[in-house]
Write a protein that binds this DNA or RNA. Structure first.
Length: 398
RNA sequence: GGAGGGGUGGCCGAGCGGUCAAUGGCAGCAGACUGUAAAUCUGCCGACGGAAGUCUACGUAGGUUCAAAUCCUACCCCCUCCA
């Protein structure tokens, strides 16, 4: 009789907000929360080896069912001994269900669309009760993703935390459509639960996704649904509106009524301010491509004191003004990049399109995020979170 | 010496009478990036101007034409082949 190897403990609650310091137990180790989950979409955090992730004190990474299903296939990963062994990462892993990708296929515009920035061509995919038919981005072949297939693949890959298959409704959806999609997502999530229990290996914990778009009553309905389902944790998904205020209003509403005993994940959000606000609203984990993508595009995350506080929390190293900046990237950062390379050298690597630029900046941004989340955890432990938030807020927002 | 090909904006390279301040690419400059089709994408990129616009430009100097980077003549360079 084996014991379910997952547990979420709330170690401390912030007196001034809904923030909490927690610990998420998985078969591959604990995740101290609040935590950031790095995106390793195709079973690799682009540019970094697992040893480097580890050195940067990374706790947990994410991979994507959709991408891995198309290449190299869940069967192959199972043959390899599971995702952990396949990618050489011993720590906790999460796999996303592929629900999000289904809506960004063939276009690449849907990520924007979900954020309310652009309209998409609605003609690409077929959504039925059974699941979603979509075109592979690799070879154009038609693929079908259903709750059962997503869960089966996630079980084969064996990530610790897995996500129920949902429909991610875009921003420009009507209320009627969002509602219809929500109901269907709930049925898919129900099927996800059943599919997981059919595999019954007990080595994976399932997250249910809260949908409902920008409509408070639908979000409320979705919260009510996931709370009743036997999910281990909850994820907040779908469109979160077109502005930060709208996003936080939705997160606020949702987190205030989710089961407080379960960990809460905010899908796809990773801005520093967003994390601070999210944590204050009770979010335990975040994932986002931003830190790693930003790095590949020449941006280095920076403490507020080291970048132009009027704008972003990063410096764009490819800018000409860093060509002769021979000082360290961030003197306070212990990462190998900051310890060894000047801004001028990093600028050069980027301009010269050297591969090291990608690795060096990614390593820094990963380190930065881990330190940032560590700072939040420490602040929570010392009841200083409110102070930290205020400090960041006043430093960054003029 | 003979025959042929070519000289275009920082570079490479299209254009071969008007719609050409001149396609592309590179380099340069700036912006974007939030469940990753992203080492990507977008914009600017002769000078002056906020803009409309004005000026200077396609080896050099003339010429033909209402109009020339595009046609003609001479000259200067470069490349290939033959002697």
């Amino acid at each position: 009789m084996s014991v379910f190897p997952f547990r979420f403990d709330v170690l401390r609650k912030d007196p001034a907000s809904r923030a909490r310091r927690g610990r998420l137990h998985t078969p591959h180790g604990c995740v101290e929360t609040p935590a950031f989950i790095f995106c390793g979409t195709k079973a690799s955090v682009k540019g970094l080896a697992p040893s480097q992730l580890k050195a940067a004190r990374t706790q947990i990474c994410l991979a994507n069912t959709y991408h891995l299903l198309l290449q190299p296939g869940a069967n192959l990963i199972a043959e390899a001994g599971g995702l952990h062994r396949f990618m050489g990462w011993e720590g906790p892993l999460l796999t996303d269900s592929g629900g999000f990708q289904v809506f960004s296929l063939g276009h690449g515009s849907v990520a924007d669309e979900i954020k309310g920035k652009r309209c998409r061509d609605p003609s690409v995919q077929k959504i039925s009760e059974e699941g979603v038919t979509f075109q592979s981005y690799r070879d154009g072949s038609l693929q079908v993703l259903t709750p059962e297939r997503s869960i089966e693949a996630q079980c084969q890959m064996g990530a610790d935390l897995i996500v129920a298959f949902d429909e991610c409704t875009p921003y420009h959806s009507t209320r009627a459509y969002t509602e219809q999609a929500l109901e269907r997502s709930h049925r898919w999530e129900q099927r996800s639960v059943e599919a997981l229990s059919a595999h019954n290996m007990g080595q994976q914990a399932l997250y249910g996704v809260v949908q409902g778009g920008v409509y408070p009553d639908l979000r409320a309905e979705s919260v009510c649904f996931v709370n009743k389902m036997p999910f281990f944790g909850h994820a907040i998904g779908g469109t979160l509106g077109s502005t930060r205020e709208e996003m936080m209003a939705i997160v606020d509403q949702v987190t205030s009524s989710l089961d407080p005993g379960r960990p809460i994940h905010l899908l796809g959000i990773g801005g520093l301010h967003d994390i601070l606000q999210g944590v204050a609203l009770g979010v335990d984990t975040f994932d986002c491509v931003h830190p790693t993508r930003l790095a590949r595009h020449g941006g280095a995350l920076m403490p507020v004191t080291l970048c132009d506080p009027a704008e972003r929390a990063c410096i764009v190293l490819k800018r000409a003004c860093y060509a002769r900046d021979f000082g360290p990237l961030d003197p306070s950062c212990p990462c190998e990049t900051c310890q060894n390379f000047s801004r001028a050298y990093l600028h050069h690597l980027i301009k010269a399109r050297e591969i090291l630029a990608l690795t060096a900046l990614t390593l820094h941004n990963v380190t930065f995020m881990n330190r940032f989340l560590q700072e939040i955890r420490t602040a929570l432990e010392q009841d200083r979170f409110e102070e930290m938030r205020t400090h960041w807020h006043s430093s960054c927002v003029q």
